[in-house]
Design a binder for these strands. Structure first.
Length: 664
DNA sequence: AGCACGCCGACT
DNA sequence: GTCGGCGTGCTC
């Protein structure tokens, strides 16, 4: 009798045993359907053994092996094991990340993206400048060995051309390339560019927005080796790739590589682990690398490659003007200097991008009579005023209600929308420049399928004069007629207590600044701020990433924060505040006593309320753990988390986040 | 995670 | 007398 040990996507730490009926071809890595209780689940057979410790009468048979699905390779099984142990998540949930969605029956594989593409000759290879050529050559020279690279290239310097040149060489030698990007929005453009540049390569695209059938077809083409390039968002890091020869992580600093629910893995870090176990080079590309990666490069553990010049007519980055936000002639927050600059662009038929990283009309609604502010009933958050369509909305739980006509507290009818979001800015510029064609690009405006692509094409065609948008517009787009970028409301990020706030703001601003002057005409950036001398704006004006990074690194060092320390965050939430408090108090007591025994260097801090102490009706609190090195941190978590399972109650939901992006 | 079981309050 | 609240514990 053969017993399959099956790992299932449930919180249980151990696999479940099933007997294998005659005729079922199961091997380690096979996806199988089984019954657990009265549920039917898909799991992964991680081992085949002769006997089970479970009494025979309790054993159930495997129902079936998922047809047509290649088994997970030994390498991906190991990858899932690593993710499980590093992020302290159940193996079954980590294995589930490596499987395509199996909710629908198998459909005929849809053709791969490249089938319709012309077999265009590769021209990028010949268009590389000296820096790009040197970078691509260094990457190519590392083939067959784990070699981590940091490719730091200013915005518009042509990092993609370097990736694709290196990819072409790997593919020419029979290898597969894994190319990770942060956002779904960017994959169609990049896929198109890959097809044009590497006309003969077949591309598999993997992201969560893909229809299930297409996703499965692309997943299979990666797994069978028929795809040369796998291009995708963070989940693609788990794709089976038998001939993997190179990994590229584009915009490696981007926060969307960190999964924020379930298994909280960081795809960039998983990718580095994968490159190491597979013995292949990995390229982390960014204009503004994360401080972790920057530190690895400056301490010599990663090989640093640099692209210092923009491709195109204007090799220098656009000049940045810092102007006062408060200004007697400002209209709805658009100051006189910015107005004048926009007017110039309109006269020259050039485009302006106004960047404000807040959607909606105004971030809060204030009663002029009594000071009441509209708040969400289920969250500790202000309701955001929307005008299109009108209403008050909570950006944390999705709650929506009608705009009140009068203050519910004192009856005053004088209600003031406070602050400015994309909708208000859109209306303001439409009033200021009635002749201009204004396009707003944010999540609300692009919710409809295909809306984003339509807007992007319209902007590229020149059917828009002023773009008002959130960070959706900041990343990766190439609008040749865009010569002015105005930044509004960026100071808000400086009030955030998150330890990465300055770093992320700089990355975002440098990225949005890079949208200006990519075509024939030079660009300019105007930042409206109350703090023109703040280091983040000073660094932006000088386009001096290195200086900001070294000052932020010394700050991190003195505060014992990553990359000089390692963090884990225990989060808990419950309907009753006291239940959260009691659970975390116990957890801290236990954690400190365990740290005393096994990991004296670990610091277990007292519970503090989460950034949003109440969300969707749940009270949320957290405990930070800080350690000088990874090993003691993981030793503590290994002892602590199972013990927490013993003392928790059904009313409290908790989870651990290893390497949290933020804790304040 | 589901989904049971199980033991205490307001309804046909 | 039952319906049902969600606390506790198991699922191969």
């Amino acid at each position: 009798l053969t017993i399959a040990r099956v790992s299932l996507p449930v919180p249980a730490a151990t696999p479940f045993d099933y007997w294998v009926p005659d005729g079922l071809a199961v091997e380690p890595g096979s996806a199988v359907r089984v019954r657990l209780g009265r549920r039917r689940l898909v799991g992964v057979a991680i081992d085949l053994v002769g006997e089970s410790e479970v009494p025979p009468e309790q054993l159930m048979p495997l129902d079936e092996v998922v047809v047509g699905l290649p088994p997970l390779s030994a390498e991906v099984l190991e990858l899932a094991r690593f993710v499980s142990s590093y992020y302290h998540a159940p193996l079954g949930q980590c294995l589930a990340l490596a499987l395509p969605s199996l909710t629908r029956p198998r459909r005929r594989a849809s053709p791969l993206q490249n089938d319709a593409a012309p077999s265009a000759p590769s021209h990028a290879v010949h268009a590389l400048n000296d820096e790009q050529r040197a970078a691509a050559a260094a990457i190519a020279a590392a083939r067959g060995r784990f070699t981590p690279f940091l490719l730091r290239g200013v915005t518009g310097s042509g990092k993609t051309a370097v990736y694709l040149d290196a990819a072409a060489r790997v593919i020419a030698e029979g290898g597969q390339v894994l190319l990770l990007v942060p956002e779904i929005n960017l994959t169609p453009q990049l896929a198109e560019r890959v097809r044009v540049t590497l006309g003969n390569a077949s591309v598999a695209v993997l992201h969560s927005g893909l229809p299930a059938g297409a996703r499965r077809a692309h997943w299979e083409s990666a797994a069978t080796g028929s795809a040369d390039i796998v291009l995708g968002t963070r989940l693609a890091v788990f794709a089976i790739m038998p001939r993997l020869g190179l990994i590229v992580v584009d915009e490696e600093h981007d926060a969307s590589y960190k999964q924020q629910e379930g298994v909280r893995y960081h795809a960039r870090d998983v990718a580095v682990f994968r490159a190491r176990t597979r013995g292949v080079p990995i390229v982390l590309g960014s204009a503004t690398p994360s401080l972790e990666t920057h530190w690895s490069a400056s301490s010599g553990r990663y090989m640093a490659l640099a692209l210092t010049r923009r491709a195109g007519a204007h090799p220098a980055l656009p000049p940045v003007r810092r102007v006062a936000r408060r200004d007697g002639n400002a209209v709805e927050g658009v100051g006189a200097e910015l107005q004048a600059a926009i007017r110039e662009r309109l006269a020259r038929r050039e485009q302006t991008l106004l960047f404000v990283n807040r959607r909606g009309f105004a971030p809060s609604l204030l009663c002029a009579g009594c000071g009441w502010k509209a708040e969400c009933a289920r969250c500790d958050a202000r309701l955001v005023v929307h005008r299109d369509p009108p209403g008050l909305r909570c950006h944390h739980c999705g709650h929506a209600q009608a705009l009140p006509r009068a203050c519910p507290h004192c009856g005053n009818q004088d209600l003031l929308p406070l602050g400015s979001g994309t909708q208000r800015l859109e209306r303001a510029v439409a009033t200021l420049f009635p002749q201009a064609r204004v396009v707003r690009v944010d999540r609300d405006a692009t919710r409809r399928k295909g809306a984003f692509d339509g807007m992007r094409d319209a902007i590229t065609r020149g059917d828009a004069d002023i773009l008002v948008g959130t960070q959706m517009l900041a990343k990766g787009h190439d609008f040749p007629r865009l010569t002015l970028v105005g930044v509004l409301g960026a100071d808000n990020a400086l009030y955030s207590g998150e330890f990465r706030a300055t770093e992320s703001l700089f990355a975002l601003l440098e990225q949005v600044a890079g949208r200006a002057g990519r075509g024939d005409e030079p660009g300019e950036v105007i930042v409206q701020t109350d703090f023109p001398d703040h280091p983040v704006y000073a660094a932006l004006a000088a386009h001096d990433y290195a200086a900001l990074a070294s000052s932020l690194l010394s700050e991190r060092k003195s505060l014992s924060l990553p990359p000089f320390a390692h963090l884990a965050l225990l989060r808990a939430e419950a309907r009753r505040e006291a239940a959260v408090q009691a659970f975390l108090d116990n957890a801290v007591r236990l954690g400190r006593s365990l740290a005393g025994e096994t990991a004296p260097a670990c610091e277990v801090y007292a519970p503090v309320p989460a950034t949003l102490p109440r969300r969707a009706g749940l009270w949320r609190s957290q405990v930070l753990v800080q350690a000088p090195r990874r090993a003691p941190l993981h030793a503590l978590l290994d002892a602590w988390l199972p013990a927490l399972t013993a003392l928790d109650t059904a009313s409290v939901r908790w989870s651990v986040d290893v390497d949290p992006q933020s804790f304040a």
